[in-house]
Simulated scan of single mutants.
Amino acid sequence: MTVSLTRADDADKQRAFLILLANPVVTAWTDPGGYGLVHRHAHTLGVWCARLGYQLAHLDQCYRLRRTPIAGTVAQPEGLPPERALLLLVLYAAACLDDHRDDSITLQELSDTVRLSAAGRGGWPYDPNLHRHRTLFISAMDWLVGQGVLERLTDDILREGWAQSGQGIGAGYRVHRDALVLFIDTGDVDLALRPPADDDDTRRQRLLRLMIETQALYPGELDDDDRSYLTGQRLRLAGFAEQMTGGTVESRADAIVLSIPPDRELPDSLLLGFPAASARDWAALAMIERIGAATEGSFRTLPLADVRRMAADVWADGGSRLTAELRESPAAVVAAVGHRLAELGLLRTSDDDWTLTPLAGRYRDAQLSTGESTGQIAGETTDETTRESGGQQMLMEGS
């Protein structure tokens, strides 16, 4: 009984830690269950954060994971960053909310304030008369709602009406100042600009950050000093990562990969979720297989001209079974697959070529099949994780 309770307690701590990784600001009104877990295990979480060189800040009913930079850098998860215009609107809105004295505000009111603030500083020209800018602004507000800074008080009707016409109040929000204070805290700016002292050994923190934040550490990309440290401390670092996340570390010569087990209570952003039962992911698997067969090494690079040729083959194989979007042209396959693999951290792109990361090797040797009689495309992956769960069949999305 004691062992069972201990395991359940460990699982709760790991879930709380993962919630912080996915949502650095956790509040009692955005995620009551997650906040309860973080609050209950705050001491242990503080110790774990210190291992990574992070800090766990607490104010009233809010917690924030502060990813303090080392020598101006942080471990940035693989994938596509948010649109720059969206981030600018989030920052402008947060700064304007800091000057707002009331406990509530409307969408239209905040939009007007942001427009004047951006124009007064000569910054990005936010124009709420443009539908695209209004849509971006609503996305920025949704971001702040997700961080607990704002809490919506009205339904979708007013907001959708404002997005379409720019008329009305748009929406009403409650302002949570405790979450706002943690969200806009600039106390780490100096750490981002200040180089570390010569006697500071940050190797453990930096490598552990890579392992946990990106879930894939590539020894070939490390300098000699870091690679030497990893050789001697690989098991210890893997043990820390598994203890804090509940995941499993797979160690290979070209990659150290952290696999987090599926959990419905965890945010989707922590789980790879690939391959899904979609035509796009079938095409992605087919491209991984073709590129892998035509290249060698850990990071498999192929010129963009060859990528387009392979995409044309995938497009021809799929034919009418593809979705309407993918049926447009081989270029549509290149765009859709490139975006999908990049957001998963399986692909790095440039103007001249595509490079599959070692993590993409998990999804090679897929047994793809075309269901001629049903007009469906299916595939069964053969990586270890999928085999253990009995395999995964992929069916076509409706076009």
Rank of each mutant, 00 (worst) to 15 (best):
R132Y: 13
A163P: 05
L344V: 00
M310P: 01
D226E: 15
L322W: 11
L65K: 05
L285G: 10
V74H: 11
W354G: 07
A294S: 14
D254T: 13
R204Q: 08
I256R: 04
E242N: 09
D142L: 09
A336P: 08
Q367H: 10
E78L: 10
R40S: 02
P262C: 04
H39C: 00
W162M: 09
F17Q: 12
P358N: 12
T106A: 12
G53H: 10
Q215M: 06
R67W: 01
E242P: 12
G79H: 11
R101S: 14
E372H: 15
V47A: 12
L302D: 02
E384K: 03
G379P: 12
L52F: 06
P262T: 01
Y363W: 15
T30S: 14
G375W: 05
G36E: 11
V181T: 11
F183V: 00
G166H: 07
P196R: 08
H133N: 07
V38T: 14
L144K: 05
W48T: 06
R177W: 00
P219Y: 07
Y363C: 10
L56K: 10
A277Q: 11
A279G: 08
D142T: 03
D313A: 14
T113M: 15
L217P: 03
D10T: 02
L86D: 01
W162K: 05
I260S: 07
G232Y: 06
L107S: 11
E265K: 13
E296P: 03
G148T: 01
T154E: 10
A216I: 00
L45E: 13
Q392M: 08
D198H: 01
M244L: 14
T323I: 07
R236A: 15
G273T: 04
G319A: 10
D185L: 04
P125F: 06
H58N: 10
L235I: 04
T248C: 09
I19E: 01
R321S: 03
L210G: 14
S4D: 12
R387M: 13
Q205M: 09
A331I: 05
A316W: 07
I256K: 02
L302E: 04
D188K: 02
G297T: 03
D178M: 02
L87E: 08
T323M: 12
A336Y: 03
L235D: 15
D112F: 03
Q393D: 05
Q76L: 06
Q215K: 10
L270Q: 06
I212D: 00
R362Q: 12
S117M: 07
Q205T: 08
D226K: 03
D156S: 13
